[in-house]
């Protein structure tokens, strides 16, 4: 457990540094292409670990079901723009089942929801953002502050913004030569409403439903002796 955690942290940090370094050091022009390759490289170790590990059938089904639930979470909220519980479900899954499972649920939820809404160049970014959301929730699950309701709410709020910023990244990267503070600010300001709605709905869900959802998942975990 401890080893895999260190492994995850170091790999993602190293690759992120590589990404930044390559942009700064090499005057290579196809930034978008580069960013896709980088995202793929960042996520590959996580998937590779999942591939090599012994995974029980129950675990696979549970993860698949959680990802599917996260993906269809949008359906009952179709009438409420920008309110969707996908992030909330991913965070809760990460907290209960740990960093790796959190990452898998997040990344797979992105793929699955896009299978029904249409894949696009944003798919890898979405996979990365949601995957990281689940992973960080899992990594921090033993921190004292994440055990409090307020800690969870702050975590959800911050990720509401981070998610939006990651999703803006692909537009910025594809236009990096034109990058100026004005452009940068413009992109982020234009998405501020959506990010705020996302962050606030995360807080709302975590505040009201966090505890009961944790109970439901922990009950399943206990009843079937899963993913301890």
């Amino acid at each position: 457990m401890e080893r895999s955690r260190n492994y995850l942290i170091s790999v993602s940090v190293v690759l992120l540094i590589l990404l930044v370094a390559s942009i700064v050091l090499f005057h290579y022009r196809a930034y978008l292409l580069l960013s896709f390759i980088m995202i793929a490289c960042i996520m590959l170790p996580f998937f590779a670990r999942f591939e090599w590990r012994e995974v029980a059938g129950r675990e696979v089904v549970l993860l698949a079901m959680l990802a599917a639930i996260a993906a269809v979470g949008r359906v009952p909220f179709a009438g409420l723009p920008s309110v969707q519980p996908t992030s909330f479900i991913i965070i809760i899954a990460g907290i209960v089942f740990g960093a790796e499972s959190g990452f898998i649920v997040g990344a797979v939820a992105a793929i699955v929801s896009n299978f029904f809404l249409g894949q696009g160049p944003w798919t890898p970014w979405q996979m990365y953002a949601w995957g990281m959301m689940g992973m960080t929730a899992g990594l921090l699950r033993n921190a004292w502050w994440l055990k409090t309701v307020w800690g969870k709410c702050i975590f959800g709020f911050v990720w509401g913004y981070l998610f939006g910023w990651f999703m803006n990244m692909w537009i910025i990267v594809s236009n990096i030569e034109a990058l100026s503070w004005g452009f940068f600010a413009g992109i982020y300001i234009s998405s501020v409403y959506f990010d705020l709605a996302h962050a606030l709905s995360n807080v709302f869900f975590l505040l009201i439903f966090g505890t009961s959802w944790l109970k439901v998942l922990q009950r399943v975990q206990r009843k079937y002796g899963l993913l301890e």
């Binding site: 998937f47 999942f50 591939e51 995974v55 696979v60 089904v61 993860l63 698949a64 079901m65 990802a67 599917a68 993906a71 269809v72 898998i104 797979v108 939820a109 793929i111 699955v112 299978f115 029904f116």
Partner: peptide, 15 residues
């Protein structure tokens, strides 16, 4: 990535 693809497949089937 056989296991991951299987997981995604299962997830899609659940939707």
């Amino acid at each position: 990535l056989p296991k991951t693809a299987f997981l995604v497949m299962l997830s899609i089937r659940f939707v």
